[in-house]
Nucleic acid binder design. Structure first.
Lengths: 325, 325
DNA sequence: CCGCTCTCTGAAACCGGTTCCCCGGATGTA
DNA sequence: TACATCCGGGGAACCGGTTTCAGAGAGCGG
């Protein structure tokens, strides 16, 4: 494996000049620049990232912590993050926290050692832990806001509002909300937005939960819905799938007896029976934006602002006018 | 941030001794070891990974290349890989190839620069490219075999055999196979195993495809099934979901008119209508095994063998006896 | 024609660990 | 008591880049 010294020798210049020719081209003459470049790719020179990291203090690695990958929500997020990282010649260091706050904190610390900064999707961590982490190294939060820490959020309130409006327009006046995990920031915001919207339209909102965002919890929720609800909004896709399962078992028809709408989207929703009305978030864009903003932060530019991305409402067959029974 | 030199000074020993006390404890006296350790955690010493990597040539990073994360198959794979990496104090450098052979090769090269070795799930790359890559640095293939390159495979033949046997035992004699992407190694193996099994039982096997493993391709496949087939096996979950959708649109009932079974599993399969009989692979274990074997390979131990992991058959409602119509 | 400034290049220091080589002292053996 | 051996520890080289600092040479004005 060729080193910079080899390249320098081959090009007949010093290590210093070779380094400059490759990383700060504007600092050397056109002629030397070409000489060095030619030598470099003749020898197949690949700069040693560790050596570079040692002096510059930049590893070119970006930590990405997600609560899970099982939720299809995160696949486009990672993809977007990767694309943005690639543009900057950086790599993604990934870790799955399994929605465990302690684990999340531990991973953040460990990743922080090696990465230039960390992008965290941290629905469960405490504000204090996240603040502390942000103080130690560049951090971008995704789908979460903590004080003035830099963040990229999918606008859950806006989404909940659109979802609520959709159901209210159909004529529903008795809504239920199957809420997400205790302490989830975005769940709290959605609930507030729904309540606000329902109240404005003179409708009632019954909240179930908080519940763990799992299939089984969804099944169980089916039996605990208030009898007079004509429409139910669900925190996320797993709960929704479980709820559908439970409703089917209980013999309740969707949307004839009950309309169902989900707070996030899932490809599989197009093929469940019936297809589920859901919010679709620009998740890939969120991943890319988070990484770009993180890189800005590492570079010294970049502000402590929150970027909001708005969802789209995908209306499918699971919602309809109430009382068709 | 404290350096090794700081620790050494605080402990009243040389850098050399401090280094040894922390990384090769058996080389120093009990007393010095304790002195150094005490100083280290008093100062909150974190060894600089880049500096260490520079001399040792080991970065503690493991590349992981997957074709996609959208397929839920890969979520447990990553989780298993991460667990194994964590045990060895290593981190996962992830990249999504989007099932593009060129991109895959490029990513492998780029990751290889920084990682000690690479775990690749490479359904589409050419044998030659993979061989070439393996020659440059440690490589473990997952769900793919190329000559004698080290690999961890989910036993597709064994799985296909079990699936075929299940349908044959139910009494089916006219089977169809909706095959996967062209050139996919595991698809080829499955097809061969199915053909062999069908032939042995005196049944007929009609093969559709190759097809891209997408939802839409599955829908299209529904119209092209041979009229006399009573059971259909499908390469993977997306094709299966699409197929179910297409069959419903065409008014064919599952399993009354047609039994459907999938070659890989998906949590969502338990809640489709009907729940789908499928193969369930120990994917998390595969991820962990791949990383452990890769680390062995980096350490010089580790052989060029293939580890096979057998699938389990999950019988659900989508398969039944033929001709119930 | 001299001297000053400006630009490009090279020598060497440096980042923070690991490891080679050697030395001093303790131990064992004759 | 004398000498070989073994062991823990220290000094310094080293990994492969980047950056500082100073010097050489060219261009310009006076």
């Amino acid at each position: 494996m060729a080193t910079l010294a080899d390249v320098a020798r081959a090009a007949g210049v010093s290590k210093a000049t070779a380094s400059r020719a490759l990383t700060r081209p504007e600092m050397v003459t056109e002629a030397t620049r070409e000489k060095v470049r030619a030598a470099a790719d003749r020898l197949g020179f690949q700069p040693n990232r560790s050596a570079r990291a040692l002096t510059t203090g930049r590893t070119g690695l970006i930590g990405l912590i997600v609560p899970t990958l099982a939720n299809p929500f995160f696949s486009p997020l990672v993809l977007g993050a990767q694309r943005a990282a690639e543009e900057a010649d950086a790599h993604l260091l990934i870790s799955v926290s399994e929605a465990d706050a302690d684990r999340e904190a531990a991973l953040a610390a460990r990743l922080g050692e090696q990465a230039d900064g960390v992008v965290m999707v941290a629905p469960v961590g405490t504000d204090a832990a996240l603040r502390e982490h942000a103080r130690q190294r560049p951090l971008i939060l995704v789908d979460r806001r903590v004080g003035r820490l830099p963040a990229v959020v999918l606008d859950a309130e806006e989404g909940a509002t659109r979802l609520a409006d959709h159901l209210l327009e159909l004529g529903h006046r008795d809504l239920a909300y199957v809420s997400g995990p205790p302490g989830s920031w975005s769940d709290t915001r959605r609930r507030a937005a729904l309540a606000e919207r329902a109240a404005a339209a003179g409708a009632r909102l019954h909240v179930l939960g908080p519940l763990p965002p799992t299939f089984d919890a969804g099944i169980a929720a089916a039996d605990r819905l208030p009898a007079d609800a004509t429409a139910v909004l669900v925190y996320n896709s797993y709960l929704t799938l479980g709820l559908l399962h439970g409703l089917r078992a209980a013999g309740r028809r969707v949307p004839d007896d009950l309309s169902v709408a989900a707070g996030d989207d899932l490809t599989a929703f197009a093929v469940t029976d019936p297809p589920v009305t859901a919010l679709s978030f620009p998740v890939e864009e969120a991943g890319a934006t988070a990484v770009r903003r993180l890189l800005d932060l590492c570079g010294g530019t970049g502000a402590r602002t929150t970027t909001r991305l708005a969802p789209r409402l995908e209306v499918r067959a699971s919602t309809g006018v109430p009382g068709r029974r």
